[in-house]
Computed example of a mutant assay.
Amino acid sequence: MKNIILTISICFLSANIAYGQWLPGKSCNSTASDITDQAIAHMVNLETPFAVGMANAALMVDPDCGSAKLLKINAAMAGNFGDRAEQLENLDTSNLSETEMVWYTIMVNAQDDWQGVRMSAASDHPEIPLFQFWGAMASEDQMAALEEYAEEFSDYASSAYNMISYSYSFNDDIEFDLDMAIETIEKTIAMHDGPNAYDSRAEHYAEAGDFEKALESQLQAMNYAAGPSAYQRNAGIYWRSSNQEAWSDSIKAYTEERIGYTMTNDTEGSLKFMPETMSMIGCTSNMNPCMAIDEPMENTSFTWNEWEVDEIDVHFNESMDTAITTYTSTGNYTMNDSGDEVDYHTRASEVWQLEDGGWKLVHSNFAPMPDGDGMPSMN
Rank of each mutant, 00 (worst) to 15 (best):
I8F: 11
K360G: 02
P49K: 06
R258A: 06
R240N: 00
R240L: 02
Q232M: 10
G116P: 02
A208Y: 10
A78P: 10
D343T: 09
Y238M: 00
E148Y: 12
G269S: 13
E127K: 15
E140R: 11
S270D: 12
K187L: 07
A348D: 09
A85P: 01
E151V: 12
A292M: 11
Y344A: 08
I35G: 00
A202I: 04
P24N: 04
F50M: 13
V61D: 12
Q244R: 11
E127R: 12
V44W: 00
P370Y: 01
C11K: 09
N3G: 13
S14C: 13
C290I: 09
N288K: 13
D172Y: 04
A78Y: 10
Q353S: 06
H192I: 00
I73V: 00
D172G: 04
E47Y: 05
N336G: 13
C65Y: 01
Y168P: 07
M291K: 11
Y156T: 02
S250I: 11
K187R: 07
L6E: 10
Q142H: 10
W307E: 08
D177T: 06
D249T: 04
D249Y: 06
A138V: 02
R240V: 04
N379L: 11
T277G: 03
M119A: 06
L215C: 04
G372I: 02
A41Y: 00
L354M: 07
N305C: 14
M375D: 07
L70C: 04
D124G: 09
L71Q: 03
I164V: 05
N265Y: 07
